[in-house]
């Protein structure tokens, strides 16, 4: 038994400080250690602000048709206009709202089933574990994008169906990681001790196992956020994402951008740059979080 315990790699602890000053100084320390991660965090905060205050920040309404269609970048329209004369910069700003909405919703919706399925699968084992994992195998064998396309086609194209499809995929993929993390901690002596004290299964799962996989949850979902945003853009690019006229970066690069791409290439520039910068920021931030919280997960995406 002792050998097994030493095999368990140390589980990082999150110190919760009561004083705000302490928390701030810890944040500062983390930022100095991971400058790129901090830069990523700043970009993400900006994204959230832009999305929330889109009405204030955007120079034009996202859906209003203007008198100058397909105009190049100018002082009036910094990123040019599209075929309906809509201001591209404004649409990119409102598009941030779509990306963020889908990203946050899919992350939140997928987290509970992923943690629940992963933990119970690892904890109870047996037939339940076997069947559930074969189901996860099946879903993972399908190319993610094709699974998403199929779900959206079956349910119909709408904002919430896109979110549901993304959440389903993330929940299944995530549950495998949660199962692994739970298996890693469930052999620890404190679990055995708790069971010896007569703790119920529910209590062991919630009080003893869950807190120990929190770092894994944070890491998986901070890196997964970028995947979700990219997947939504890919779906919209193929015309299966958030239905128009709601501005979405992927959609702007497809339905709007591609038909006019040779005559009006600026229609592609702004959404592409926005998408790349945000995904880049999420990756940097997620990498930093992973290194700080759970170095074991290095190399996973």
């Amino acid at each position: 038994m002792a050998a097994e315990v030493t095999q368990n790699r140390p589980i990082p602890t999150i110190t919760i400080t009561s004083r705000a000053g302490d928390a701030l100084s810890q944040l500062g320390k983390a930022a100095r250690k991971k400058p790129m991660g901090a830069a990523g965090a700043v970009v993400l905060v900006l994204l959230v602000l832009v999305a929330i205050f889109a009405d204030v920040v955007a120079p034009y309404p996202a859906l209003e048709h203007g008198p100058t269609p397909l105009a190049g970048p100018s002082s009036e329209h910094l990123a040019g206009t599209d075929q309906f004369g809509r201001d591209i910069l404004s649409r990119v700003i409102y598009g941030a709202r779509t990306s963020l909405y889908v990203g946050v919703a899919a992350t939140v919706v997928s987290m509970v089933p992923a943690v629940l399925l992963g933990m119970t699968s690892a904890f109870f084992g047996g037939w339940y574990d076997y069947l559930l994992q074969r189901f996860v195998d099946t879903i993972q064998a399908l190319p993610g994008l094709i699974l998403l396309m199929t779900i959206v086609v079956i349910l119909g194209s709408s904002l919430w169906n896109v979110i549901f499809a993304l959440s389903f995929n993330r929940a299944i993929v995530g549950s495998r990681v949660m199962r692994g993390a739970t298996l890693g901690v469930s052999t620890a002596t404190y679990v055995e001790a708790a069971r010896a004290c007569g703790a119920t299964n529910v209590r062991i799962i919630l009080r003893h196992l869950l807190p120990n996989i929190v770092p894994t949850i944070i890491v998986v979902y901070s890196l997964g956020f970028g995947t979700v945003i990219l997947a939504e853009a890919s779906l919209s690019f193929l015309g299966l994402g958030v239905p128009p006229p709601t501005p979405s970066w992927g959609g702007m690069m497809a339905a709007d951008g591609r038909a006019y791409m040779f005559a009006a290439p600026w229609m592609l520039w702004a959404p592409t740059i926005a998408l790349a910068v945000v995904v880049f920021a999420v990756n940097m931030f997620g990498d930093a979080i992973r290194d700080l919280l759970d170095p074991r997960l290095r190399g996973t995406r």
């Binding site: 890919s234 992927g250 690069m253 951008g257 591609r258 592609l268 790349a276 910068v277 995904v279």
Partner: peptide
Amino acid sequence: ISLPNFAIAT
């Protein structure tokens, strides 16, 4: 890693 392949393709 950050550039989606449909953007690169386009």
